[in-house]
Design a protein around this nucleic acid. Structure first.
Lengths: 225, 225
DNA sequence: ATTTGTATAATTGTATACATTTTTTTCAAA
DNA sequence: TTTGAAAAAAATGTATACAATTATACAAAT
């Protein structure tokens, strides 16, 4: 009998990654294996598997002396990540438009409506969730496995930065931008959907950059650049 | 004293990856830890670190029962990889053109000349090497760390496929295409360099696809699609 | 006071033993 | 002959012991 097991390494991977994304582990902080294995109450063996994964994703950086430190976040890297996202998600939107079934369009329409409601009532947590749902559903539709894989690797880095500069509730025009993408998909217009998606991602980047400048001006928090 | 150590896991990672790329381990073949640890004469602990890396890069696929199998190669995935490469390397060429120093241009000119010679004399091994050198040097120049990282992950997958369909010596126009990219860089024309690079990558994809069709027609070898 | 060398502690790297899960085999009953 | 359950084997998952490397503390020399 084959069943999907919940492996210790995967749980550890997720937990450590969350701690990095949400700032419990700070940029450039050194993490030790014993410390982590005690914290997560697991042995070093599965822990090291988890650390290896995070090292591959460059959330953790192996120093020449073998110690691991939490990756730093620079503004330039975040800008690059959004540039890459605009290209990858652009392709995804184009392919999704080509492949779209009427069921797909119904699902996306529902997600968009929930996004609109969340925005209207100021539910920032739900707003982020439905936004992600929209993008994830498109990714699934596109069938572009490699693009989706690469995207998943870099998205969390961008999310980390967004949390770092407290982006929640700072988005502008996101509802309309998503609606425009859906418009292209409904019309099976791949080129339109691609362009709308690229604009949307770059507009999101602009929001993030504005937020960085706001924080820098008001001298709140310590922004790494 | 800090020194760069040669870790068992890294050696194992490289060796196993080579065996996958060059077909010693075949698509869908199941690999066992004990088998590999005996073959490489290392214990399971560093081996498992290496396997974890290859799993993250999707050269190895973890099945629900925990067994690892060598990833398959489909024509669609290769096409997608080249599409992504054209985008990433396009950006890289654009940034490289912006950043180019006269030293950089000299280095690239030398590499191009070596590439031309290798092509002229039919040295296919050197031809591939200098081609890679050209792209790697641009990648370094661009300063786009994330793009370079993602590229390195997907390139080896494409190389694997190229070896699979015996691409060596089947390239057309590569010398001229590289020359055109260099032209854009010399003129600091980012848009031109980006376009030339994109065309170059997609032209390479076309070569690969032609090769697939040739092989399919002549019934040589077993092509996965 | 600064540097250098050495002993000690701390940390990571590796091997191996054990636990758990999955697969295969065996063998009896239908 | 087929089926199914139980036992055995084989493979992966985890914990731990040990080895090798790196960092620290501190005394001695300059």
């Amino acid at each position: 009998m084959v069943q999907n097991r919940r492996l210790t390494k995967d749980v550890a991977y997720y937990q450590i990654k969350q701690k990095i994304i949400y700032g419990e582990f700070k940029p450039d902080e050194v993490v030790r294996e014993e410390q982590l294995s005690e914290m997560l109450e697991i042995s070093r063996t599965p822990l090291r598997q988890a650390l290896q994964m995070l090292e591959m994703e460059e959330f953790l950086i192996r120093q020449p002396n073998g110690r691991l430190k939490v990756a730093s976040i620079t503004k330039e890297e975040v800008e690059e990540i959004f540039q890459i996202r605009s290209m990858l998600e652009g392709s995804i939107a184009r392919n999704a438009a080509t492949n779209a079934s009427s069921d797909d369009i119904n699902v996306l329409t529902e997600i968009l409506e929930k996004l609109r409601q969340a925005y209207h009532f100021g539910y920032s947590q739900e707003f982020v969730t439905y936004g992600n749902d929209f993008h994830d559903y498109l990714a699934e539709m596109s069938g572009l496995k490699t693009s989706v894989k690469l995207l998943s690797m870099i998205k969390d880095h961008a999310n980390r930065y967004c949390h770092f500069v407290s982006m929640y509730g700072k988005w502008s025009n996101q509802v309309d931008e998503h609606a425009l993408i859906l418009e292209g998909i409904k019309n099976k217009d791949g080129a339109f959907a691609e362009l709308a998606m690229k604009k949307h991602i770059l507009s999101t980047l602009k929001d993030v950059i504005n937020r960085i400048e706001d924080k820098a001006n008001s001298k709140i928090g310590n922004i790494v650049d």
